[in-house]
């Protein structure tokens, strides 16, 4: 049977596509829906599973980041450190079967090691955030120190967003560009909450392309 693409991103019902601006304008914060990506959760104890590092590198072309709170990657494929034996592998591949395919790739590559690779591509929404006020606005939602000296490009931090909603924050560059990964059922909460934080910071938000 041919798989038909009926997919909807978690924020689909907000109709963001029609609200996209070309640039930030006067807005202090730009927000975007990053759309579909392949996302895998990987659990493996690199210290105990001899050769697992190499297996991953062979399969994906880069090494798993072992420094806490960092990411590593190559060509649109990256791994975010989530814990001492846990990573989130993200591939910028929006094909409907991307999650399944990359799951197979990583599973195959890690065969023989005690590990768990799970497809969670549908479980998260990815919200992009940028703009000169992005850090100030986020300091209203998360208890982390968002100062450029404290949250640097390439870093990944998990924390609590608003009231008891988990978030994975990945700072891609110093401009700043953030990727926020939140569980899909919380996506609208995070989106609206951020806009309210911007109001509290006395700035506007603009919807930007993913």
């Amino acid at each position: 049977m041919v798989e038909v693409n009926y997919r909807q991103v978690p924020l689909a019902h907000l109709g963001l596509a029609s609200k996209i601006e070309d640039s930030l304008g006067d807005a202090g914060v730009g927000m975007s829906d990053r759309g579909f990506r392949a996302i895998l959760n990987l659990r493996v104890d690199l210290a105990k599973q001899a050769g697992a590092r190499e297996s991953f590198e062979k399969a994906m072309g880069f090494t798993l980041p072992e420094t806490p709170n960092t990411a590593n990657g190559k060509d649109g494929t990256e791994a975010l450190w989530l814990g001492p034996n846990e990573w989130q592998v993200v591939v910028d591949d929006n094909a409907p079967d991307a999650g399944t395919r990359w799951l197979q790739t990583v599973r195959q590559g890690m065969r023989g090691h005690f590990c768990a690779v799970v497809d969670v591509s549908n479980a998260q929404a990815i919200i992009g955030m940028t703009g000169p006020m992005a850090r100030e606005v986020l300091e209203r939602a998360v208890p982390l120190d968002m100062h450029p000296g404290a949250f640097k490009p390439g870093e990944v931090k998990q924390t609590v967003f608003g009231r008891h909603c988990g978030v994975i924050m990945h700072l891609r560059d110093e401009s700043p560009v953030f990727d926020l990964y939140v569980r899909r059922s919380f996506a609208e909460y995070v989106w609206s909450y951020t806009r309210d934080c911007a109001r509290g910071a006395q700035t506007d938000t603009a919807v930007l392309a993913g």
């Binding site: 009231r163 909603c165 909450y193």
Partner: peptide, 18 residues
Amino acid sequence: GRDVEEFFDPTRKTPMHS
């Protein structure tokens, strides 16, 4: 603060919510 009314608690919605 802002954690009142619609933000009093996060609300979780299923893909079929709309």
